[in-house]
Every structure is written in C-alpha cells, then in structure tokens.
Amino acid sequence: MTESDLRPRIEQIVSRISRIDASEFHDDVLIREELGIDSLMAMEILATCEKEFDLQLDEAEFSCVETVGEFFQLLEARYAEQRIAG
C-alpha cells in the first residue's frame, strides 16, 4: 500500500469511530473544536490505525495536531517511516 492509498483508509476509520461522514474531512477543519472529536475518540482512532497499518503512534504527538490535514500528514509520515525502517 502506498501513502496515497492510505488516506481513504484512514478516513474510513475516522468516519466509523467519530460517526461523521468522510466527506466532511477537509484539511483545514479543526479536529476537536469543529468535528467534536474528543480525546477518547482520538485514542480509539489511533489504536485502530496502529492495528490496521502496524504503526507505533504516540498519543502525545496527536495532542499537538489541530486540523484534519495535520492528522493525515502525521499518519502518512509515520507510515512512510515505518516502511523505510521495515
């Protein structure tokens, strides 16, 4: 799977857990204030992404993420690192 294949799969996970339609995930949308994704939902999203993509994610790193775009970038970066390392 390439990084470009990743986004739709992450969107699917976020959509399932947050119960928000994936069409709402625009890069500049604020994750907490606009989408209303709280910390527990975020942790479930991270845990699901870890399992699905075999990643190690740091919750503290996520706490610095503000927008949907930043979240996807973070996951894509971790995924790329994992592929290089693996």
Partner: peptide
C-alpha cells in the same frame, strides 16, 4: 489517565478484531 485509555483502546481494537 491518557496511558490507561490508550491501553484500553488498544485492547478494545484487538478484542473486536
């Protein structure tokens, strides 16, 4: 608390899988 919920969520995801 954050570490605990991280663990809970991982267990939940594994259990559902």
């Amino acid at each position: 608390r954050s570490e605990y919920f991280g663990r809970v969520c991982r267990q939940l995801v594994n259990r559902r899988a």
